[in-house]
Structures are given as C-alpha cells and as structure tokens.
C-alpha cells in the first residue's frame, strides 16, 4: 500500500464516522438515495454509493429512518425520511459531534 493510499484510507475512516450524522441531519425532508447523494456532495461531503445505500438500509433497520417507494417519471424510487426515533437521537449525536469538534480544535490548535 502506497503512502497516498494509506492516507486516503485514513481520511475515509474519518469521513465514515460522520456520515450517519450527516445523513440523519439531511433527511428532515424525504430524499431518495441518489438525490441524497447529490445533496451531500453539493454541501461538500462526497459519499460513495457503496457506503450510502447499505447505510440507509441499516439506519432504517435500526428504526432511525423510514422509507416508502414512489413511482416518479415511470421510475420507482425509494424515499427515505428521518423517523420519530431518529429525531430523538439526532440532537444527542449533534451534541456528541460538537464535543468532538471542540476537543479536536483544542488539540490541533
């Protein structure tokens, strides 16, 4: 493994940790997988499809999201939205995140 690959892996690990929070925060309004992918990318968080779609399924299985199939432009799309349980968890995750940012900001200053 080259140094660049190794660095990329570390960066990927760092990003992976925040994807759950990013996804929950963006699903106040319903989105289908690809639209969510673009929404995150537009805000600067590039997420691989191979990471996002299984994550959406996992979060739904854990009860933090709910989904519904809709037919749009003759194409079925699965729309995801944060569930009541997800809404309870989100503020706690945000608080956790704020704590991490604060600690890391001090460490890296």
């Amino acid at each position: 493994m080259t140094n660049i690959e190794s660095l990329e892996n570390v960066a990927l690990e760092l990003r992976r940790g925040v994807i759950v929070l990013a996804v929950l925060s963006q699903l106040g309004n319903e989105q289908y997988g690809y639209s969510l992918l673009k929404l995150l990318a537009d805000q600067g968080l590039e997420v691989d499809q191979g990471t996002l779609y299984p994550l959406l399924r996992r979060l739904e299985a854990q009860g933090y999201l709910q989904s519904v199939w809709k037919l749009e432009e003759a194409r079925p799309r699965r729309y995801y939205v944060i569930s009541a349980e997800g809404k309870k968890v989100l503020p706690k995750l945000k608080k956790e995140w704020a704590g991490i940012v604060s600690v890391m900001a001090k460490m890296l200053a």
Partner: peptide
Amino acid sequence: KGRKDIEKELRSTLEDM
C-alpha cells in the same frame, strides 16, 4: 434479506445516474 428491494433501488439509481 430484502434482495428485491436492493435490486430495485440499484436499478433506479443507475438509471438516474
């Protein structure tokens, strides 16, 4: 579990892309 759903969602995403 949910293989059909995964396939349906994957097809829809690829067609969108």
